[in-house]
Every structure is written in C-alpha cells, then in structure tokens.
Amino acid sequence: MVVKKTKNRGREVNRTELAEINGVSLPTVESWVRRGCPVVQRGGRGRAWQFNTAEVRNWREDDIRAEASNATHANKDELLLRKLRAETEQVELDLAKAREQVVPVDQFERAMTKAFGEVRAGLRNALPGRVARRLLGESDETKMKEVMLDEVDQILLVLSDSDLIHECDLEIEDDEEGDDEGADGE
C-alpha cells in the first residue's frame, strides 16, 4: 500500500482503500463519485483512482448535512404530496375499519395473549400425563424423543382445530357511536 502525504492533511488512497477506510462497498464509492466526491486522479487504462482522505471526509460531512437539510426543508410540492399521501392512507385505514378488516393493536395483543395461554395450558395439562404413560419403563432415548414429539404434535393438532381467538376477542370497541341503544328499550 503506497501512501502519499499531501498538503491538506489526509493521505492519497485508491478506491478499495477508500472503501475500507470508510467501511463501505466499492459501489458506494462509485456512487459518491457520481454525486461529486472529490477525486485526485480518475482511474482508467492502467491508472488507479486516487482520493485524498481528508477531502473525501470533508465532502462526506457536507453531503450528509445537505441530505439532512433536504429532509427537513421540503418544497411546497413535496409537502402537498406528503399531505395527500397521508390523507389517502387515513381514508384507506377508515375503510378497512369500516369493513372490520383491522382491530386496535391492544385488542389484538390481548387476543394473542389469550390464545398463547390456551396453547401453554393445553401442553402443560395434557403432555405430562400422556407422555408419562407411554414412556413408563422406556430407556431408549431415541424412542423417548419420538414419543414426546408425537404427543406434542397431537396436542398441537387438537389446538389447531379449536378456536383460540374468538370474534368477541377482536370486536372493535366503538366508543363514539352508542351501540347500546337497544338497552334503553328503543
């Protein structure tokens, strides 16, 4: 590795070395060059690419700042598109709610907790007794594993046939509209 010292700090390196120093891939370095990364010498026909590490570091800092400021200073058209996109997403979410295709996350989490509790209870309640009977007097480890896996599969099959999550677990709670109109005798 030939390293040349330059006047403005840093050192001259080739593309591979620049990629290694910055922890990026060669295509990333090529992308940087297309976006204006400073080059000491362009490569080609037996000449290696040369970059000054200090100049590249300064350019990267400026490039990162520019990207960050572009993200925060969107123009009017970009803001209108973002607003339109957000409004569209809200309408689609409202439609999915109206079609009862979504439920609030907390209700889904409660239903899943209940379902996993039933799976756990099914395994803990049925497995030990069933396995103990089948393994009584067994000493072959392979046979023991087969029996336990068979029993787990049977219990999971029974659980898969049962409704672990009921519709009532996922009913959308509608606080805004009074669904209890019939309770007043109307």
Rank of each mutant, 00 (worst) to 15 (best):
R42L: 09
E17Y: 00
V33D: 13
V56W: 00
L156M: 06
L127I: 11
G23I: 11
L170P: 03
A48R: 14
L149E: 11
N8E: 14
D161Q: 12
I155D: 11
E176S: 03
G43H: 01
V39W: 05
R65G: 00
P104Q: 14
A19Y: 08
G23K: 07
E118D: 04
R42K: 11
E176I: 09
L156Q: 04
Q90I: 05
D94W: 01
S31R: 03
V29F: 00
A121V: 05
E173R: 11
G44S: 07
G10L: 10
L149C: 14
R60K: 12
R34W: 11
A111V: 03
R99W: 07
I165F: 07
V29R: 01
E173P: 04
V39K: 00
S160L: 02
D140C: 02
V2C: 04
A111P: 00
S31F: 09
E78D: 13
K145V: 10
R9P: 15
G46R: 04
S25I: 06
N70W: 12
E87C: 10
E30S: 07
L80F: 05
V152G: 07
L84V: 08
L84P: 05
E30G: 06
P38D: 02
A66D: 13
F116L: 00
V147M: 09
G117I: 02
T88C: 01
G129A: 12
V29N: 08
T53N: 03
D174A: 02
P27G: 02
L18G: 02
A132T: 13
E78G: 13
S160I: 00
N125L: 11
D62F: 07
W32L: 09
D140W: 12
G46C: 07
L127G: 14
E141G: 05
C168H: 08
D140R: 00
L156P: 01
K76F: 03
E181Q: 11
T72C: 07
A132V: 15
C168I: 05
I172P: 01
V103L: 05
D63H: 00
G44Y: 04
Q90T: 10
S25H: 08
S25D: 13
A98K: 08
R82A: 12
E17G: 03
T53Y: 08
P27V: 12
E167L: 10
D175F: 08
A183H: 00
L123P: 08
R82H: 14
R35C: 15
E146L: 10
S160T: 01
M112C: 11
T142W: 10
V40H: 04
N70Y: 13
E12Y: 10
